[in-house]
Every structure is written in C-alpha cells, then in structure tokens.
Amino acid sequence: MRLSLILTSWLALAATAAAQNPEDTRRFYPLDHQQPVGRAGRWQATIYPGLSSYSQPVRIALPSEGEVTFYQGSPQAGVVTPAPAQAGMQVGYVYRVKIAQMADYPGVELYPTIELLDRLHPPTELKDKFPIPIELTTAEIETALNDQMVTKVIYLEQPQLATPTRQIDGKMHTEVLEHDINLLEAADRRGRPIAIVRLGGRIPDPQSPQDEFFSTSPLTFIPQP
C-alpha cells in the first residue's frame, strides 16, 4: 500500500511538471521577440552603455546569389553589395536592409530588419573575420512572401550547452519553436542572444520615397568576405 501511494503521488507531480513549458527558465523575462522593434536593443544599450559604440560586423547570406542593400537614411543612400555581404553595425540599433536580385526569386524584394542586442569578442585584428552570421533560407523567404512574419533570434552558444551536431557546409544550427515560446528566453537558455532578425512582406511605399520604412542607424562599411 505504501509503495502504491508513493508511486501515485510521484505520477501526479510528474504530470504537473510535464504541463509546464519546456523552454521556461523560471525567470522573469519582461521582453520577448514580439515587442516593438528596437525595444530589446535599446534596453541593452541602456544597461551596458559602452556596447553601442562598438561596430560589430554582421554578414548576411542568401540562399543563392543576390544583392544586399544597406541603408543609412533615405532609400537614395543605399549601398548595394553582392551577397554574402557584411557591414559593421552597432549594438542597440536597428538596421533595415534590402535583399533582391535573388536567382530563385526574380523580381522579389524583401526588407528584413536586424536588431543588434550584443557583440562578439574576437581578437581585435580578426574582428572582420568573425561577423555575426545571418542566413536567410528559402523557407523563410517563401514564408514572408505569403504575408507571414519570420522572427529569428541569433545567439552565441554556451559551450557547455552547445548542440552536439556538426555544421554541414557551415550552415547554422536552427531550431523552430512554437509561436507562444519566448524566443529571447529560449536563446538565453542556450547561450547569449546576439541579434533579432525579422522578415516580412512589407515593402516601401512607392508613392512616398521618404518613407518611415528605412533605417538611419550608423553603419560602418568593412571588407567584404
């Protein structure tokens, strides 16, 4: 009778534990990936004032050939670079880039944003060799073309928690989580969140060239990979 009671109690507790969110770190996260664009970066730049002055190389790769346009203000100030393209971005800022001229998607232009939350710490002379990699895949582009939104949180793995899988052709390890999961919390659980990438189907207003759409965040142009 005693063994049966203990077993029943354990089963009840196990059922309660299983009902909890597996990504829940049991810590309070005021921010999540659905917050307004720029909020997480701004909090980070406020908490760590020195971060925003560092120019962090970011490399944007497309599924195939294409062009990446960086903006520093109006759409007339775009700098067109063949993909993969890289530029120096500052923590706490948000950058709107244009991806176009993709071989698999003729005529398609998309405008993802990149919100930088943190920086990497390579040796100073090798800074440009270790950019934050942002890889936009075919599935993500097609999702955006279907009027849906893709939000990606890029994080630096904690060595003790790194996923023991081999990178194939240098492709990043990617996990797709349910929509009700806080991606920032999930990334923090696995390592250090570095950037938020958002991709949707909105394009600039053709009737208004001075659209609010484009970013004016400070950019640094660095040698391309």
């Binding site: 701004r42 800022y93 948000v94 009027d147 909105r202 207003d205 609010e212 004016t216």
Partner: peptide
C-alpha cells in the same frame, strides 16, 4: 524624430502607417 536614429529608435517612431495589400 526619424526612425532608427537612436538605439531603439524605431520604437520611438513605430509605424504610423499600415500597408494594405
């Protein structure tokens, strides 16, 4: 008050238009 000028700037200038397709 243009977008993205300060860290987190776009939040200061959240989209004021909605694009209808």
């Amino acid at each position: 008050p243009v977008n993205y000028m300060v860290p987190g700037g776009p939040e200061a200038a959240a989209p004021r238009t909605s694009q209808m397709k």
